[in-house]
Design a protein around this nucleic acid. Structure first.
Ligand code: MN
Ligand code: MN
Ligand code: MN
Ligand code: MN
Lengths: 218, 218
DNA sequence: AAATATATTTAGACTTGGCTAAAAATAGTA
DNA sequence: TACTATTTTTAGCCAAGTCTAAATATATTT
């Protein structure tokens, strides 16, 4: 129905829309897609003609509900495949993203439905991100960044913002994964660094780490 | 490494090569790929430059060992995914081909290796076709078409030549699948039609049916 | 062997999705 | 407000892969 390029644009715009409420700028899209702003303008005009997003010259774009639905469908596939790769094929959670980038474009509603059932209709992917349902609705859970917690607060790790291998491997070394309980023992206000407790271990983390861990506080 | 179009050409030529020993003609490729001969000429020249096949103007082409290896790799992926779809997702054997046509282009050696292990390192796909090993070698088994059998001969169905839904659904209706024992009760030499026995049933089949069923005798 | 038919290649064009360089609009600053 | 910097768009070009129409080579008949 839609080309690989079109799906990738819709997905990128969808994600950018979540982060910063309001219209998405041409440059932001170009940045996210590692492409040039001029290429973005071309594609955005094409997608606007197809009513997948609304666009006004120089004003940025935002997805129509039709565009959002398609984007959510691609994200649904991406995350379901990631679950498959980790749960069934025993990939490590830092190895699956690139493969899912390819698998998310496989076109077959029946396949998605059966995959979902095969995996036990999971709600979250291996990185803690919610899996949109077949209608494109995403369950948003109240979660905050670890860096927003104060001294003595505690919570459960429910997701990662960054999914680069180096970060995920760091978390493994520290025995932090989805579901891990974390308590803030100390917080330095000058640089935002923290001392946290994970299981029996206590250690120092930088603000950059704390900025990339999602926590649910009871 | 290679584009989707390139992989599909290599696969088509590989299959054509098996059927008719000798060079593969431009028109045959165009036919199989549902494209125009002029498009085939373009691509074949490009693949020849990349040393994936040998080509002489007006003389047809044949894959180099490098080209064969790549084609076998794509076919390996196609057939492994078909096994996944049927064994794990419970698709029917007549529903999987189109989806496998997409999945066969996913690029990740690690994925193929893990999928293979997950599926129990199968030797055949749901249609009885052999799955090439990681080096591109295909185990060829001695099999003949049902239409080649004579009256009173018997054997086991080990594959189908045609994989269109209508044909596979016909076989289902007749309770014929991979592993089914078939005995030829009668054969009409005028049109090649047969009376065969399958389980307790005896029925008439046309030559066209008999031409698309692979049988292993002895 | 010449004529005809078929197969194949070439030439030129089109679409998709990129890019660079230049122009135009908007935002920021003095 | 006027100048400057940044963002965005336009214009023109390119590569991959496809097509149609025309040219050329090979195969088949007479
Ligand atoms: Mn991912
Ligand atoms: Mn993920
Ligand atoms: Mn198939
Ligand atoms: Mn098959």
């Amino acid at each position: 129905m839609f080309s690989l390029a079109e799906e990738n644009y819709l997905k990128a715009i969808f994600h950018l829309q979540q982060e910063s409420k309001g219209g998405v700028s041409t440059n932001a899209i170009a940045e996210k897609m590692s492409t040039k702003p001029s290429s973005v303008t071309d594609m955005v005009q094409k997608l606007a003609e197809k009513k997948l997003l609304s666009y006004q010259k120089y004003k940025g774009t935002s997805l129509t509900s039709k565009g959002s639905k398609i984007a959510a469908g691609v994200i649904r596939k991406h995350r379901l495949w990631e679950v498959f790769l980790v749960d069934k094929l025993k990939f490590h959670w830092d190895e699956v993203h690139e493969i899912a980038e390819q698998l998310e474009h496989i076109q077959s509603d029946e396949l998605v439905a059966r995959l979902d059932r095969f995996l036990g209709e999971p709600d979250f992917d291996p990185h803690g991100d919610p899996i949109p349902d077949k209608n494109g609705n995403i369950k948003t859970t109240e979660k905050k960044l670890l860096s927003e917690l104060d001294k003595k607060q505690r919570g459960v790790c429910v997701g990662v913002k960054e999914t680069k291998s180096e970060f995920l491997q760091y978390l493994d070394k520290r025995n932090i994964t989805i579901g891990t309980k974390i308590r803030v023992l100390g917080k330095e206000f000058f640089d935002g660094s923290m001392i946290i407790q994970v299981g029996r271990d206590q250690f120092f983390i930088s603000k950059k780490i704390a900025d990339n861990l999602y926590i649910q506080t009871s």
